[in-house]
Computed example of a mutant assay.
Amino acid sequence: MDWRLELVPVPVADVERAKRFYSEQLGFAVDHDMSVGGGVRIVQLTPPGSGCSIVIGGGEGVTDGDPGSVQGLQLVVPDIAAARAQLVERGVAAGPVQHVENGALADGPGGPWNSFVYFRDPDGNGWALQERPGAN
C-alpha cells in the first residue's frame, strides 16, 4: 500500500496576497480556487514538478493554524544557485546559499544534500530550498 503525502495546509491571513505570492513569485500552478460557501475559500497550488500541493484558504475548515506558524517546508531543486536567482528575480527575499558545518549554518554551498536557501511567504511561513546530489 502506498502512503503519499499530497496536500499540506499553509495558514495565511490574506488568501489573495498568498495566492499571488505562490503563483506569481514562486511559480506554483493554481490547481483550483473555489468558494464552498459560508465565507470559505480554498486555493490549491502545486510547485513545478511536485507530487505534493499546498492548500491556502480563508474561513473555517481550511486550517486551524495561525498565519505564519508553519516552518520547515522544504522544496528540493537540481540547481540551488539557479533556483535562488529565480526567486530573487521574482522579488522574493531569499537568503544566501548556505550549508551546515559543525552544527551551524555557513555561507556557500556544501556537499551532497547540504546546500540550502531560506525564505518566507508574506505571512512568515518558513520555506527552504535544498539542492539534491548529482544535480550539477
Rank of each mutant, 00 (worst) to 15 (best):
V92W: 10
V36S: 13
I56Q: 12
P67Q: 09
L45I: 04
T46V: 06
V88C: 06
V76E: 12
G57T: 04
V76A: 12
S69W: 05
D64F: 02
V70W: 02
D66M: 11
P78T: 09
A83P: 04
L45D: 01
V62T: 13
G59Q: 05
Q71K: 15
S50D: 05
V92H: 10
E89Y: 02
Q86H: 09
A81T: 13
L87M: 01
S35K: 11
G72I: 04
E89F: 00
L45S: 05
S69N: 10
V70A: 15
A82N: 02
L45Y: 05
G51H: 04
G39Y: 06
G72D: 06
Q74M: 15
V43G: 03
V77E: 00
R84W: 02
V55S: 13
V70H: 12
G91W: 08
V88H: 11
I56T: 11
E60W: 09
Q74H: 13
G38D: 14
G72H: 08
D79L: 04
V55L: 07
T63Q: 11
V43I: 09
I42G: 00
G37R: 04
S69H: 12
G37D: 07
Q71C: 07
P67E: 09
R84C: 05
G49N: 11
I56H: 11
S50C: 13
I54E: 06
P78L: 00
G68V: 04
S50V: 00
Q86Y: 02
G65K: 07
V62K: 08
G49D: 01
A81G: 12
G65Q: 14
G68K: 04
A83H: 05
V36P: 06
V55T: 14
V62A: 09
G39P: 02
I42V: 13
V76T: 12
G39S: 10
L73D: 00
G59Y: 07
G59L: 01
A85V: 02
R90S: 14
E60P: 14
V62Y: 06
Q86S: 14
I56V: 15
V62L: 09
G49P: 05
A83L: 07
I56F: 12
L45Q: 03
I54Q: 10
G57V: 03
I80M: 00
S69L: 08
C52Q: 12
A85D: 15
G65V: 03
T63W: 07
A81L: 08
G57W: 03
D64R: 11
P78G: 10
I80N: 02
V62S: 11
L75V: 04
V92T: 08
R90E: 01
L75S: 10
S35W: 00
Q86E: 15
Q74Y: 12
A82M: 02
E60N: 13
I54P: 03
V70F: 10
R90N: 15
S53K: 10
A82V: 02
I56Y: 07
V62P: 11
V36D: 05
D79S: 07
G39L: 02
V55A: 14
I42T: 01
G51T: 08
A82K: 12
I80D: 05
V43L: 05
V43E: 03
V76M: 08
T63D: 13
V43N: 10
G65F: 06
Q74A: 13
V36Y: 11
I56D: 11
G49I: 04
T46C: 09
P47N: 08
V70K: 14
S35Q: 13
L87Q: 04
G38T: 02
Q74W: 03
V40S: 07
L87S: 00
L45H: 04
Q71W: 08
